[in-house]
């Protein structure tokens, strides 16, 4: 029996599974946005455009997906003869694809909302929060959104793996690490993250130093990727 590289298949299946969750998630989020528009229209105010509106929720969605990924897939895949390595590589690829998908969906919804607002007035606030300011270029706004989604999933995955491997006492320590990582991520992108936890750390807004933010963010991603691989490389499967 010749062995075939299984990680592309694993990546596709993991993406497909989580994308199904994402469709549910976006259905609710879009419904929420529509309800929000109706409410603010009555009060004569406006609501953030969908791309900005969804950014926080998408990040949390990715975090939860990451946590679930560790528990839902590890035992199942290894039981069916997939190596931890194939599962790891497959997970990373699927997470990249998922992060891309959850960036493109809000963008598309945003475009549709803008097209509609050309025809009929929608109570949408086009002044965005500084973090995802589409005014400074859609490409960079989408890029930041994508990196953020990817990072949140990796952080969730790290928490899940920590709990899976060490149980809830030490697993709780991983929540601490995750909060630090989330704050660091927020710090790079000027979300007030770290500075809200540790007061004397200065805030670096992304537009002030995009290079520093990008470098720091990529470094954080690299550290997360290496840690998760080290923790799962020889992990024992629970039965």
């Amino acid at each position: 029996m010749k062995s075939v590289k299984l990680y592309p298949k694993v990546a596709f299946d993991l993406f497909y599974e989580q994308f199904k969750w994402a469709i549910w998630f976006f259905s609710f989020l879009i419904a929420g946005h529509i309800i929000g528009m109706i409410i603010v229209a009555r009060n004569d105010t406006s609501i953030q455009q969908f791309f900005v509106f969804s950014s926080q929720s998408v990040a949390i969605f990715m975090l939860v997906c990451g946590i679930i990924a560790a528990y839902a897939f590890m035992g199942y895949y290894v039981q069916h003869g997939i190596t931890r390595k194939d599962l790891y590589v497959g997970t990373v690829i699927s997470t990249l694809a998922l992060a891309l998908a959850v960036t493109l969906v809000p963008l598309a919804v945003n475009v549709i909302e803008h097209l509609i607002s050309n025809l009929a007035a929608l109570p949408i606030d086009t002044d965005a929060a500084p973090l995802y300011d589409p005014a400074s270029g859609w490409f960079s706004a989408a890029g930041i959104f994508f990196l953020n989604a990817f990072t949140y999933h990796l952080i969730g995955w790290l928490i899940g793996v920590g709990y899976y491997r060490f149980g809830w006492v030490i697993g709780f320590g991983f929540v601490g690490i995750a909060i630090a990582a989330l704050s660091l991520n927020g710090y790079f992108w000027g979300d007030g993250g770290l500075s809200s936890v540790i007061p004397w750390v200065p805030e670096i807004p992304a537009d002030a130093s995009p290079f520093l933010a990008l470098a720091g963010s990529l470094l954080l991603i690299a550290v997360l990727l290496v840690s998760t691989r080290m923790l799962t490389k020889r992990i024992s499967i629970k039965m």
Binding site: K2, S3, K5, I82, T83, D86, R234
Partner: peptide
């Protein structure tokens, strides 16, 4: 352990 060909056989 972590042998893709062998793990697939079990």
């Amino acid at each position: 352990f972590e042998n893709p060909e062998k793990m697939q056989q079990v």
